[in-house]
């Protein structure tokens, strides 16, 4: 009997040791290298979420223009140079000179496009920001001199629904590789309007799970995400680049 238990512990300890050693040598392990070989963009935080094309003589460019049309609608047009726009589905490997557009409305990722026009609907009354960036086939944004190749425009919507009043809000600040004041928690009721303001000292991408809201963050620039909390549960809000959770949203 004692022998049996000794074996259990021995097995557990061995497992732990194996685990520890695998994790510390993670970047050099054969599996990890084999994976890099297969797919160079697997480790997002290792290779970054961007592709620098500063060395090109004619790097791609993009510009955005738009007009408010009907109630709560905006017609956007994009002018793209030095880039062939290709559909995102089926997913494909990076090909230089190819890519698609990422569109953000008020910092929130809303669409990936290979067309040069798009209609945003259901906008609320007030000023909205529309930002377009160009991305590789494998969803890395093209950069020149450390900055994303992008353009943005602000359009005032005069006729539209009033922005619903925020019931509960929180500000999450990320500084020096961790969350200021520890992991932030927000508890709300189902159906409430929630506002999450995010501020990071590095460029990153915030993702709220299940609600699947993504906010592109620029260092030092606060972005606010507003939505109705309609799914109950506890949800993780994480930073993609940094790779850790910064918010726990409890909806009950």
């Amino acid at each position: 009997m004692v022998e049996v238990i000794k074996k259990i512990f021995f097995a557990l300890i061995v497992a732990t040791l194996i685990s520890c050693s695998s994790s510390t040598t993670d970047d050099a392990s054969p599996t990890s290298m084999a994976m890099d070989h297969n797919d160079s963009h697997d480790h997002h935080h290792d290779h970054g979420n961007s592709l620098d094309v500063s060395q090109l003589t004619d790097p791609p460019t993009v510009s955005i223009s738009g007009t408010a049309t009907e109630t709560g609608e905006v017609n956007l047009n994009f002018a793209v140079k030095n880039l062939e726009l290709v559909p995102i589905s089926p997913p494909s490997e990076h090909e230089s000179g190819q890519g698609h557009l990422h569109l953000y409305v008020d910092g929130v990722s809303v669409a990936m496009l290979h067309e040069t026009s798009y209609v945003v609907t259901d906008l609320t009354k007030g000023l909205h920001n529309f930002r377009v960036a160009i991305s590789t086939n494998d969803h890395r944004e093209y950069h020149v001199d450390g900055k994303a190749i992008s353009d943005s425009i602000s359009i005032e919507i005069e006729e539209g629904e009033e922005t619903p009043e925020v019931d509960k809000g929180i500000t999450v600040e990320v500084k020096n590789g961790t969350v200021v004041d520890g992991l932030q928690r927000l508890t709300v009721d189902v159906g409430e309007q929630v506002s999450i303001t995010l501020l990071s000292d590095e460029d990153d991408m915030f993702h709220l799970h299940v609600y699947d809201l993504e906010v592109s963050l620029t260092a030092g620039q606060p972005e606010t995400l507003q939505f109705q909390a309609d799914v109950p549960g506890v949800f993780e809000g994480e930073l993609h680049e940094a790779g850790y959770q910064i918010l726990a949203l409890e909806v009950s």
């Binding site: 990722s109 799970h209 699947d212 549960g233 506890v234």
Partner: peptide
């Protein structure tokens, strides 16, 4: 409209937990 999220999950799959009892 297609959104693709490349996520790092803490527990195998899923970024949702049940409400505390």
């Amino acid at each position: 409209m297609v959104l693709i999220f490349n996520s790092l999950f803490a527990h195998g799959v899923g970024g949702r937990s049940d409400l505390p009892i």
